[in-house]
Design a protein around this nucleic acid. Sequence first.
DNA 1: CGGTCACTTGATCGTCTTCAATACCAGTGG
DNA 2: CCACTGGTATTGAAGACGATCAAGTGACCG
Lengths: 244, 244
Amino acid sequence: MAYRPLNPATLDPAAPDPCATWCAVRAITCPETITPADLAVLAVHATVAAVPAGDIFITEGEPAVAFFVLTAGTAKLFKALPDGRVQITGFVGPGQFLGLAATEVYTFSAEAIEPVRHCHYRRDKLRALLAGFPLMEERLLEVASSELEAAQAHMLLLGRKTARERLASFLLAQSRQGLPCGRARTSFRLPISHHDVADYLGLSGETVSRTFTRLASERLLSLEPVGTITILDAEKLEELAEGD
Amino acid sequence: MAYRPLNPATLDPAAPDPCATWCAVRAITCPETITPADLAVLAVHATVAAVPAGDIFITEGEPAVAFFVLTAGTAKLFKALPDGRVQITGFVGPGQFLGLAATEVYTFSAEAIEPVRHCHYRRDKLRALLAGFPLMEERLLEVASSELEAAQAHMLLLGRKTARERLASFLLAQSRQGLPCGRARTSFRLPISHHDVADYLGLSGETVSRTFTRLASERLLSLEPVGTITILDAEKLEELAEGD
DNA sequence: CGGTCACTTGATCGTCTTCAATACCAGTGG
DNA sequence: CCACTGGTATTGAAGACGATCAAGTGACCG
């Protein structure tokens, strides 16, 4: 019900293959490291699927059979406590992948917060494939490292920053979302509910709301009616995010 | 082929390749994936060093020139805010490595909390070497993945658990420290100061102390005078750690 | 011994949570 | 067109949990 798997057989190997071209090039090899010939090999093992918003397509504790690459939409990754408390550990957008588990079982869940399209590879097959694509493996290691780096930054946020600092950090990160290196936009739409922001920042939804309006009243940002956020004073926001 | 695990204390510094044998086998290739011949190659590029307790041997923001493998002692990894707030992101013991940075600059600091011995490799050389050791690269990916997993668990702890739950989680983790899979000891010595525990769990030292005594008064554990901790009710502690 | 350092314990304070009421918005069907 | 609904955001009031400040204890060491 959640899945509408597409038949990989319908893929035309001659035509620019949607999944292999898109996933492999954009996600695993931003710096192009895979030849078109290699892509064809990869394409054979990919399965495409669509997930409607709100559906959980990876569940913590279930056997980790596949490895995913998003091609559209946004998903949240999270861990939950039995009593319902949730910590979102990250968001994944188009071109990013997930499911890099070391264990035989997923240790987190993933839910589409926008309609998601992804292609996935069976882990056992991928493992064998990787042997033939050392550059791809290298790239995977790079990605894992940078995720680890992000995770450490988030631990600092969760363990030591105040609500204001957390939100400032988050908004700055969002403003840089998907842009190369040092670039940032001043105005953007937040595709994430306040409640999810709260679960990401380790706060309550109410505190997120209050903190938003407080930052707005301090003229650090402005909240357009439509849910668009404009950063008015990136300078001060940056200072706030770093804690002084 | 079976490798003989070497005791680092008995290593003869004059012997040919103490580091390569120890580091490579124990850390990078617990499941043996490197041949003795390969080890010799690695040994050429390794440098051994000793760090006294309290010394910072990796500093956030400095060029990430090397990649480390600990052979003795314990180190804490941490990130700090300009005003002095600190979040410890993990502890590293013998046989583990660190410095898997994706960037050109370290994004965390490392300080020896016990006298540390480590061998390190220059990143540029290692990069080239890895090309020749696909199994080693694969192992690195595995390690990075499991670190990521641990990081996510810690985010849940920092973002959503109470002080009691944090300490319970921490003590259970410590009780399993270094043991294979499901094993745990009931009594152990904590090599970490309360203040460091606090910085790891996102609490104040005072709260750590209070929580310790409270758990002891509830007969979940007992605090021997010498700083040894004995877990009296692992069952209940487990429940507590998971939040119900 | 006097010094330092880590830990303990107590009292007070502040931040964030919780609970609750209200406002808001989009979609639906009368 | 307008009321009705369900979900999401805002705002207020009260309370809890942990931080901070401060004093006191004990161990270790020159």
